[in-house]
Simulated scan of single mutants.
Amino acid sequence: MKILTVVGARPQFIKASMLSKAIKAQSKIEEIMVHTGQHYDHNMSTIFFDQLKLTKPDYYLGIGSGSHGEQTAKMLFELEKIMLSVQPDIVIVYGDTNSTLAGSIAASKIHIPIAHVEAGLRSFNKKMPEEINRIITDHLSHLLFCPSKTAIHNLKQEGIDKEVYLTGDIMYDAVIHFKDPAIQQSTILNDLSLTAGNYFIATVHRAENSDEPERLKQILTAFQRLDKTIILPLHPRTKNKIQHFKLDHFITSSHIKTIDPVNYFDMLALVSQAKAILTDSGGLQKEAYMLRIPCITLREETEWIETVQTGWNHLAGYKTNQILDKVNHLKLPQYSPSIFGDGRTAHVIHNILLHSF
């Protein structure tokens, strides 16, 4: 059996590393990996292959940044050529990026079955490009691997009920596998003069926040008014927007430490020892829950509704006062159910693939 895996962004590298490990433990599946190059910064791309001990991709497209249409079109063109050449039995895509969309459309046009890892997620906000990507991918996919019961329910509401599997979340596999090595090997807390439990991690990168000057200003004002150290890894796109909107002065306070995007081990070390997370990232909301770190989400909705229901995640939106209110009233919940499986999602997916083709 031959599978073609399409990745292009940091979370996809992490998820793919776990399934690749499960595949390599067997000899019945040949995996061919394509890296679209959607993330091309060293700390957001190449280094992950080294840290996660991923085999270097068989194909690197080097697409880079661009508008959604330009980026997706370039990927479609290149991926179709590769798929026609490789003739895989199935194409595997992860998550909700433009790489996910391009991989699923390219495969569907030439009648190659698609497996979607992290299927069924919905924010119900179609202004988010990620929402469009995940809806289209789910409706094109032949195998749908869902991280939670909510995801299965969402698919059923859209009439998708065949070849839908509750597998757990493959990111949980990675958190369990890499947490201890990350804490042991990373020096970032010492490098930044941090004490465990005495700082916040903040990230802002969603277009709905970073592209809107008033929203971005309100979020940065909240960071400015907090009285605890904030580590703010600045996504290149967000950094450019802050400069463009002339909001630099909001992040010059002594308690705000802006840093370049960090590698997975450093980020895992930072998140696992933080007091709380402030983010608009879907992946970080989920990782915070897995690590039992409170999260304040800088959006009005989330795909990970279970994390809100358990009290570990709080929707604050973008307004300064609402963010500060959520921070000031943070409490550690008493209950943290295993909503993302048992850390063996990669093995579950691997076995389904083996028995499906």
Rank of each mutant, 00 (worst) to 15 (best):
Y165F: 15
D260T: 12
A288W: 03
V175T: 07
Y60Q: 11
D169H: 02
K162P: 06
E78F: 09
A182K: 05
L121Q: 05
A107Q: 04
L270I: 13
Q224K: 14
V308H: 00
L268E: 05
I183G: 00
I105T: 04
F340K: 12
F145V: 06
P113I: 08
H244Y: 14
M75R: 02
S104N: 09
L54V: 08
E131L: 09
F357S: 00
I132L: 15
I82F: 01
D50E: 13
E31S: 11
P57A: 06
H116I: 05
Q51K: 11
T297D: 09
P294M: 04
W312V: 01
F340L: 14
K56G: 02
N351H: 15
H42N: 12
L121W: 04
K228T: 14
A202E: 11
K53L: 13
L143Q: 03
L216Q: 05
F223R: 01
G311R: 03
D280A: 03
L268R: 11
T167M: 05
S85I: 05
N98S: 06
V348H: 15
I3P: 11
T5N: 10
L234F: 13
H177R: 15
I14Y: 03
H42S: 00
G159I: 10
Q87G: 04
A276K: 04
E306W: 09
A182H: 08
M83S: 07
F340H: 08
A288K: 02
T150I: 15
I132P: 07
N321R: 09
N190Y: 05
S104G: 10
I132G: 02
E303R: 01
H142L: 00
I230A: 01
D260K: 11
A119M: 11
F13W: 04
G66V: 12
M1V: 08
Y60C: 04
L332R: 10
K319M: 03
P113S: 07
W304F: 12
Y264M: 02
K286M: 08
I3T: 12
V117S: 02
S281Q: 03
A269C: 14
I160P: 13
I293K: 12
I188D: 09
I132W: 01
F145Q: 01
T5H: 12
D161T: 12
Q218K: 09
G64A: 10
T36S: 14
H39F: 05
A73S: 15
N240R: 15
R215F: 05
Q38Y: 07
F13A: 00
R292F: 00
